[in-house]
């Protein structure tokens, strides 16, 4: 019985990795057996080769580095502005009244539609890429922060009041900590759209000569499909790392969210 259970646990651990290995192998075999042209679908081995070359000649690390910097710059602007305004709206009815129509009007607007305008105003430099990604990430962040503050359990506020907390203490010691899970959820969403928008901006900007979006476009235009795949692999790994990092920060800063029914 316990041996069977041990085997099940081993299978649970090993199987996901085995499925990936199997998938890559099947891909390699199908490409080779059918003789598929690399410009349509390169074999994993070819992609790995290009990946290695791009790492060795420095083009992948350099462009990924530039993109990552842009992502974090855009995200930092959006996070500061979004959390700041969201918290302010949650605490001041006046601020919420003033900001609400703007958010309601601008949130549904596809932010990519702003690219032509931003290119006119800011040119094709760094400012444009950071601004477009920050604007996009700002909305989910501000909306989640506002909702988090507004939806704080009234019972906690009353309990704090009963225990002698002043209005200011309630804001700082109860409302803000209680809103943290919601604020973090907004930051996760914001990070996701920042990545999308920075890559898109690098593709569309045209004149910029760096970044993963630029690298992808360039490789695509000359049909170096192996390079395209190598770029995609790098982006996928980067995305996975960002998600892991966010989960780690969540656990460090807000460990109580792991327990449902916490109060």
């Amino acid at each position: 019985m316990s041996a069977a259970r041990g085997a099940t646990r081993l299978a649970e651990r090993a199987l996901p990795a085995l499925v990936i290995v199997f998938f890559v192998l099947a891909w390699e075999l199908v490409v080779r057996a059918r003789g598929i042209a690399p410009i349509y679908l390169p074999a994993p081995s070819a992609i790995a080769l290009y990946f290695g070359r791009m790492v060795a000649d420095g083009s992948l690390p350099a462009n990924l580095g530039v993109t990552v910097l842009r992502i974090f710059a855009g995200f930092a602007v959006a996070a500061l502005a979004g959390v700041g305004l969201g918290v302010l709206m949650g605490m001041s009815r006046l601020a919420a009244r003033i900001a609400d129509p703007w958010i309601a009007a601008l949130y549904p607007l596809p932010k990519i539609a702003l690219i032509p305008l931003l290119l006119i105003w800011l040119g094709t430099g760094e400012a444009y890429k950071i601004v477009i990604s920050a604007i996009t990430a700002f909305f989910p962040i501000v909306i989640s922060a506002y909702a988090g503050i507004r939806e704080v359990d009234r019972g906690l506020i009353k309990a704090a009041q009963d225990l002698g907390a002043s209005a200011r203490q309630i804001q700082l010691k109860v409302v803000i900590p209680a809103a943290i899970p919601s604020i973090f959820a907004g930051l996760h969403l914001g990070m996701g759209v920042t990545i999308i928008l920075v890559i898109a901006a690098e593709m569309i900007g045209g004149s910029s000569q760096s970044g993963m979006g630029y690298l992808l476009m360039q490789a695509g235009q000359v049909m170096e499909t192996e390079k395209v795949f190598a770029d995609l692999v790098a982006l996928a790994v980067f995305g996975a790392l960002v998600i892991k990092l966010q989960q780690w920060i969540d656990r460090k800063v807000a460990p109580w969210t792991a327990y449902r029914d916490g109060h």
Binding site: D153, G155, L156, K158, A159, A160, L163, G164, A165, S166, Q169, K173, V174, P177, A178, I180, A254, W256, Y259, G262, H263
Partner: peptide
């Protein structure tokens, strides 16, 4: 509904009122 503060440890929950003072 108890209204304990879920982000505070047992000790910090109990100390909350004293902290506010």
């Amino acid at each position: 509904s108890l209204n304990l503060f879920p982000w505070r440890s047992v000790l910090d929950n109990v100390a909350f009122g004293l902290e506010m003072q």
